[in-house]
Each structure stands twice: as structure tokens, then as C-alpha cells.
Computed example of a mutant assay.
Amino acid sequence: MNCWFRGLTLASVVLVAACATTRPVVHHQGDVVTMGLQGQREHALADTSHWTLQGKLSVSDGNDNHSGGLTWKQDGDRYDFTIRAPVTGRSFRLTGGPDGAELEGLDGGTRRGPDAETLMAQTVGWQLPMAELKSWVLGLRADTGPAELRFGDDQLPSQLVQDGWTVDYKAWDATRQPAMPSKVFAEKPPYKVRLAIESWQLGQ
């Protein structure tokens, strides 16, 4: 693995999200009203394919933990995913779309692959479900198969189970309409992805 990524290893990562509401611990299956509200959220965000988020990302494979500042720009089917190392300030950039993916910033030059998931797994050992994460980060179910939703007392999703991953919504920015996730933890043992979102810019 690239030495720079080893340099990102941290014992723990503090994920802080602005304007976040603390999530209740208790989960419950959605009743008619709760599912109706979620349906309204999903309808309002269904066509949201252009956005930028700023935050912090932590990824673990069960042995190593890596983290950094994140800027994620989504432009339809195309993405620009930049991670900055917390100490050195060095960054790498993952870009691509339906025609493939490119990873810049590694020793040895730009790497290319058929898609983001394959490229990240082959080059740095990260398991990032990019196709699904594009929906999950919005608090939506991906269109890749059946999903189970659970809700907190605030009637916002607290957990989503899909494609073998368990996605816990630890905090939401309820100042936005519709409310947007601000702390998202996804896990498929031994892999873990932790995302703290500090700002959303929808439509750009």
C-alpha cells in the first residue's frame, strides 16, 4: 500500500458535524406517517444529482484506519472525490463516471480502473461502495436492491440495511428542508466508512 496512506493511520477519528441533532438510540420500523414523510424526502431529493459536500472521511478495513478532509462533488453520473491528509496536507483525487475512474496523487502517477470501487480496492485497499453511497449519503435507499429502513423518534432514518451494508445515521441537519444527513456510518464487516458532513451545497 502507498506509504502516504499508511501515514494517514489514526487510532481514532473525531467526527464533528455542524448543525447536527443527536440521534436517538432506539430504532423502530416506520409506521404509515413516518414512511409517508420519508417518501416526501425521497421525492424531494429524487432528482438531486448535482451537489457538493465538505466533511471528514474515515475508512477502516479492520486493521488500518485512514482519514482525511473530504470534498465530494457530484455532477450527474460524474464525481470528483478529493481527500486531504490531516497532517501533511497532501491530497488524492478520485474522478470518473460511467466510462471509468481515475485516481491521482499516488506515488507512480495516475491510476485508472473500470469503476471507483474496483480502482480504490486495487490501489489502496479501501472498500467504498461508491454507487450506493451516492444515495445513502442523501439519506435515500439506493436502487441496487431491497432495503430495510428504521427510524428514530424524530421520524428521520436512523438505520438503513442494503446490499450487505448497515448504514447508521448518527446525526441530521434538521435546519435544512428537507433535512440532510450530517453523520453517516456504514459498515460491512470488516469494512467501515465514517463520514461527517460539515456543509451541503445542493444544485452545484
Score class of each variant (00 low, 15 high):
74 Q>H: 05
74 Q>W: 04
75 D>I: 06
76 G>K: 07
77 D>I: 00
78 R>P: 01
79 Y>S: 02
80 D>Y: 04
80 D>H: 11
82 T>F: 02
82 T>L: 04
83 I>P: 00
85 A>Y: 11
87 V>Y: 11
88 T>Y: 07
89 G>Y: 12
90 R>M: 11
92 F>S: 10
92 F>N: 08
93 R>H: 10
93 R>M: 13
94 L>F: 13
94 L>E: 08
94 L>Y: 14
95 T>Q: 12
98 P>Y: 05
98 P>I: 03
98 P>M: 07
99 D>F: 07
100 G>K: 03
102 E>G: 07
102 E>K: 14
103 L>F: 03
103 L>R: 01
105 G>L: 03
106 L>K: 04
107 D>L: 08
108 G>A: 14
108 G>P: 07
108 G>N: 08
110 T>D: 10
110 T>Y: 03
110 T>H: 06
111 R>G: 04
113 G>H: 10
115 D>I: 06
116 A>L: 02
116 A>C: 10
117 E>H: 13
117 E>D: 11
117 E>C: 02
120 M>H: 03
120 M>D: 07
120 M>T: 10
121 A>N: 11
122 Q>W: 08
123 T>Q: 14
124 V>R: 06
125 G>S: 11
127 Q>T: 15
127 Q>L: 10
127 Q>V: 13
128 L>T: 01
128 L>Q: 01
131 A>Q: 10
132 E>Q: 15
132 E>Y: 02
133 L>S: 09
134 K>P: 00
136 W>M: 02
136 W>L: 00
137 V>P: 02
142 A>S: 15
142 A>F: 01
144 T>Y: 04
145 G>C: 04
145 G>K: 01
148 E>L: 05
148 E>G: 06
148 E>W: 00
148 E>D: 15
149 L>Q: 07
150 R>E: 13
152 G>Q: 01
153 D>A: 13
154 D>V: 07
154 D>S: 03
155 Q>K: 15
155 Q>R: 13
155 Q>V: 09
155 Q>A: 14
156 L>I: 09
158 S>H: 05
158 S>R: 09
160 L>A: 14
161 V>W: 00
162 Q>L: 00
165 W>M: 06
165 W>Y: 07
167 V>S: 01
168 D>N: 11
169 Y>T: 03
170 K>M: 12
171 A>G: 07
171 A>Q: 02
171 A>M: 05
172 W>R: 05
173 D>T: 11
174 A>F: 00
175 T>S: 15
175 T>Q: 13
176 R>T: 13
177 Q>N: 13
181 P>K: 06
181 P>E: 05
183 K>N: 05
183 K>T: 01
183 K>E: 08
184 V>H: 05
185 F>L: 13
